[in-house]
Nucleic acid binder design. Sequence first.
DNA 1: AGAGGTACCTGGCAGC
DNA 2: TGCTGCCAGGTACCTC
Length: 271
Amino acid sequence: MPELPEVETTCHGIAPHLLNQTIVKVLVHQTKLRWPVPAELATELCGTAVQDVTRRAKYILLRFPHGTMLIHLGMSGSLRLCKPYMPRAKHEHIEWYLTSGQVLRLNDPRRFGAVLWAADDPYQHKLLKHLGPEPLGDVFDAEYLYHVTRQRKGAIKTFIMDSKQVVGVGNIYASEALFRAGIHPARAAGSLSRERSARLVQAIKEVLQEAIAQGGTTLRDFTNSEGKPGYFAQALRVYGRSNEPCLTCGSTIKQKILGQRSTYYCPRCQR
DNA sequence: AGAGGTACCTGGCAGC
DNA sequence: TGCTGCCAGGTACCTC
């Protein structure tokens, strides 16, 4: 579930419920996420208030007076606001009790997600420090993409999924953006012209913005912070459509593995 | 430096 | 019904 639009949707959904709320209690039921959940999380947060809720790449940042909590949803994570009397669901590993009477719960079946603590500037944290520009920001433009892809022989799809180059482009939206830009996913990144770089940047921004506007993708079970599904799944043009007709030209959508990830494309529209 | 592979983990599904 | 094998939206880290 969590690609950038899902994380943005989650962030947006939880922010009003968390801002200025004091943490009453933290319960960590499972410390084994991608990295061990730091012990100070359960102690240091109590009695302090959430000052800000922001996002950097796919990390959700909750700022407190004395540090920042980083939450990554990994491959299967979700955050949900509940009433304390609602029974804890399977895989709800961490609970943050708020003065409002609500509880924020982290559910993550595959446990690829992470909850970390940054006492100092979170942007200097090891995991955030080397991230590339935000895909929806001004830094990520045609000239940038053209410049950083020069001499690169690897596939363009793998390149745009590399968070050191640009963050937030996951497997689904990489396929979708390349389809919209008419670029074959296996094409060498360095072979893109200025014009095609511009088209790809535009397509990435569009596909992400549309998905955010519609509340994220529904694949198997994505639900936003209120438990409602996203509605972008129906807008996917190539992802998950192998052997179905291309919506533009009618050719058969192909699937191949690139960088160990399933990739979908139209062999006629994408060159 | 860049490219490619591996690891972390559970659940759902197809096929037998 | 139950087993096995495969696949899944991320990404840090390792080796070549």
